[in-house]
C-alpha cells in the first residue's frame, strides 16, 4: 500500500466515523474496513446518478407506481 493509499484509507475511516456519529452510531473498529469498502462502492454509484442532468420538474419517485 502506498503512502497515498494509506492517507486516503485513513481519511475514509475518519469520514465514516464522523458521519456515523451524526446518526448516533458508533462503529466498532472491526467493522470499519468493510464499511469503508462499501462506502467506496456506493460513492461510485452515487457519482453515476449525480452525473446525469435531470429537468427541475422531475420529481422523486417516493410513491412509485410502475
Amino acid at each position: 500500500m502506498s503512502e497515498h493509499d494509506e492517507e486516503s484509507g485513513a481519511r475514509d475511516e475518519a469520514v465514516v466515523i464522523a458521519t456515523a456519529r451524526d446518526v448516533g452510531l458508533t462503529i466498532d473498529a472491526s467493522c470499519l474496513p468493510g464499511v469503508v469498502a462499501n462506502r467506496v462502492l456506493l460513492r461510485r454509484y452515487a457519482a453515476l446518478v449525480h452525473g446525469f442532468a435531470l429537468p427541475d420538474t422531475c420529481e422523486p419517485a417516493f410513491e412509485y407506481r410502475p
Binding site: V16, T19, A20, V23, L25, I27, C31, G34, V35, A37, N38, R39, L41, L42, A46, V49, H50, F52, L54, C58, E59, P60, A61, F62, Y64
Partner: peptide, 22 residues
C-alpha cells in the same frame, strides 16, 4: 457493513436516485 454504509449515504443521493427512477 453494507447496511451501515447505506445508513450513512447523504440524503441528496437518495433523492437523486428517486428522481432518476421517475
Amino acid at each position: 457493513d453494507r447496511l451501515i454504509a447505506g445508513a450513512l449515504l447523504p440524503s441528496g443521493t437518495l433523492v437523486q436516485a428517486h428522481r432518476f427512477r421517475a
